[in-house]
Amino acid sequence: MSQGYQRSLPLLDDLNRFYWTSGKDGVLRMLRCQSCGHWQHPPRPVCPKCLGRKLEPDTLSGKGKVFSFTVNAKSWGPGLEVPYVIGIVMLDEQDGLQLTTNLRDVAPEDVKIGMPVEVFFEKDEDVWLPMFRPTMQAASA
């Protein structure tokens, strides 16, 4: 994103603050049920699998694969550089654990379904936004 574009940022609350600030140390974290081990995103107070209420932030590998994507060619605000890629990344830790994000450091025409990606973070005000880019293996393939 260019300097002139001001994106909408998430409102932080007691349930999601850890997620939006955990990228400060370069680590992706999501809630994980301490009863059954189920990862859950977005953060909610009850596990959808076992209905447990003991959910705590836990560390993920930050690796996954592109599940789906779209290339946006419209500039929705002054200074927004186009085209850019919005992707759904399927995280390695659990089937169905997905994150909608921007795919960076890759030309839009080079993005492929199943492409291995890894997380990195972009700081904007008081949040660290998780973005994904091709892993080193994908970049050299």
Rank of each mutant, 00 (worst) to 15 (best):
residue 26 G to W: 09
residue 27 V to H: 09
residue 28 L to N: 05
residue 28 L to E: 02
residue 29 R to Y: 07
residue 30 M to F: 09
residue 31 L to D: 06
residue 31 L to K: 02
residue 31 L to M: 13
residue 32 R to G: 06
residue 32 R to A: 08
residue 32 R to F: 06
residue 33 C to L: 12
residue 34 Q to M: 13
residue 35 S to Y: 10
residue 36 C to L: 13
residue 38 H to R: 14
residue 39 W to G: 00
residue 39 W to R: 07
residue 40 Q to W: 02
residue 41 H to N: 01
residue 41 H to Y: 08
residue 43 P to F: 04
residue 43 P to K: 07
residue 44 R to M: 06
residue 48 P to W: 11
residue 49 K to T: 13
residue 51 L to G: 04
residue 52 G to H: 12
residue 52 G to A: 13
residue 56 E to S: 10
residue 56 E to F: 00
residue 57 P to C: 01
residue 57 P to M: 07
residue 58 D to G: 07
residue 59 T to L: 08
residue 59 T to Y: 01
residue 60 L to S: 00
residue 61 S to I: 02
residue 61 S to W: 07
residue 62 G to V: 05
residue 62 G to H: 04
residue 65 K to F: 09
residue 66 V to P: 05
residue 66 V to S: 09
residue 66 V to G: 05
residue 66 V to T: 11
residue 67 F to Q: 03
residue 67 F to C: 03
residue 70 T to E: 07
residue 71 V to P: 01
residue 73 A to M: 10
residue 73 A to L: 09
residue 73 A to S: 11
residue 74 K to E: 10
residue 74 K to W: 12
residue 75 S to K: 01
residue 76 W to A: 15
residue 76 W to K: 15
residue 78 P to L: 12
residue 81 E to R: 10
residue 83 P to I: 07
residue 83 P to R: 02
residue 83 P to C: 04
residue 85 V to L: 07
residue 88 I to V: 14
residue 88 I to G: 00
residue 88 I to D: 00
residue 89 V to W: 00
residue 89 V to F: 02
residue 89 V to Y: 00
residue 90 M to Q: 14
residue 91 L to I: 00
residue 92 D to I: 03
residue 92 D to A: 14
residue 93 E to D: 05
residue 95 D to V: 05
residue 96 G to T: 04
residue 100 T to Y: 04
residue 104 R to M: 14
residue 104 R to A: 13
residue 105 D to Y: 09
residue 107 A to I: 02
residue 107 A to V: 03
residue 108 P to F: 04
residue 108 P to R: 05
residue 108 P to K: 03
residue 108 P to E: 06
residue 109 E to N: 12
residue 110 D to M: 04
residue 111 V to K: 09
residue 112 K to E: 15
residue 112 K to A: 14
residue 112 K to F: 11
residue 113 I to W: 10
residue 114 G to D: 14
residue 114 G to R: 10
residue 115 M to I: 09
residue 115 M to S: 08
residue 115 M to W: 06
residue 116 P to M: 10
residue 116 P to G: 12
residue 117 V to S: 06
residue 117 V to L: 05
residue 118 E to H: 11
residue 120 F to L: 15
residue 122 E to Q: 15
residue 123 K to M: 11
residue 124 D to E: 15
residue 124 D to L: 14
residue 127 V to T: 13
residue 129 L to G: 06
residue 130 P to M: 08
residue 130 P to Y: 07
residue 133 R to A: 13
residue 134 P to F: 13
residue 134 P to H: 13
residue 136 M to L: 15
residue 136 M to K: 15
residue 136 M to H: 15
residue 137 Q to H: 14
residue 138 A to K: 07
